[in-house]
Nucleic acid binder design. Structure first.
Lengths: 145, 145
DNA sequence: TATTGTTATACTCTATAACTATA
DNA sequence: TATAGTTATAGAGTATAACAATA
């Protein structure tokens, strides 16, 4: 069923439209992941930041934002939160920039995050019928920007 | 590349994770659609509601909410907006329930919405490489609930 | 008793504008 | 001049709790 068929079908409703289905799938996925991360008191975006700085050290706030498509302005309160939770430290690079680095506690939490996220991603893929599975990520990446 | 490979690859970053890619793709899609609907002064959820009541007449607010997974509490201000814009009317069914019906202006706007959304959905699918395309909607629907 | 509609409230993600200080 | 970090503010989607009125 292509979009035009879906729009005029009485059966499928909006769920026959890829855009609408994409939104609903993403919402369900976010709710699931948010629930799993709530047990370690983190938001989805918190965990994304921690995962990024766990792989690339000495990144500035702006660089993290570019990688994750988080606005500079929104990085500040996010990092404030992570700093309050003792998960990261801001270390001066020069008098303008600062590196965002994991604390010991942050490093420990990152191990948990990786475990939670990996299990989450595997559960997610497991719900997709096998014949469609290998096509899912390539399709998403084509839409990502 | 499966999730576990992606988690420990230095190259792909988080975009190798289907869940993260799903979130990014949905955000990009929503921004695109929101932009197209802004020209007719509607939000994405406004257009979804109008599309639904354009196909099934005499639906109550609660019923629309169930179909679109919009909380009852969030339907009220949404319908207030649509009513202020003269796109819908609330008509009493009994002393408790009311049907949400399209006005003449709502019916005219719906024609535009259908055109905009159909073009949007086609553009969206066109960005996905052909070999992945037929698998996209089935995969999303498997994740939808 | 369960449901409808509503109000109030809050959280998360995202977005823009504007300011400062420094590269 | 451009960039880094920040503050303030707003919009949009989603969520829960609670209430009155009615089925």
């Amino acid at each position: 069923m292509n979009p035009s068929e879906a729009m005029f079908s009485k059966n499928a409703g909006l769920t026959g439209l890829p855009g609408y289905a994409l939104r609903r799938a993403a919402n369900a996925m976010m709710a699931d992941l948010a629930g799993r991360l709530a047990s370690i008191d983190l938001r989805i975006s918190d965990s994304a930041v921690l995962q990024v700085i766990g792989e690339r050290t000495d990144m500035t706030s702006s660089e993290i934002g570019k990688v994750l498509e988080i606005q500079r302005a929104n990085m500040a309160p996010l990092l404030d939160r992570l700093e309050s939770a003792q998960l990261i430290r801001r270390e001066p690079i020069d008098r303008k920039s600062q590196a965002v680095v994991l604390t010991q506690h942050g490093l420990e939490q990152l191990a948990t995050i990786r475990r939670v996220v990996l299990e989450f991603e595997e559960d997610l893929m497991a719900r997709i019928p096998a014949r469609h599975r290998p096509h899912f990520l390539p399709a998403l990446r084509a839409l990502m920007d």
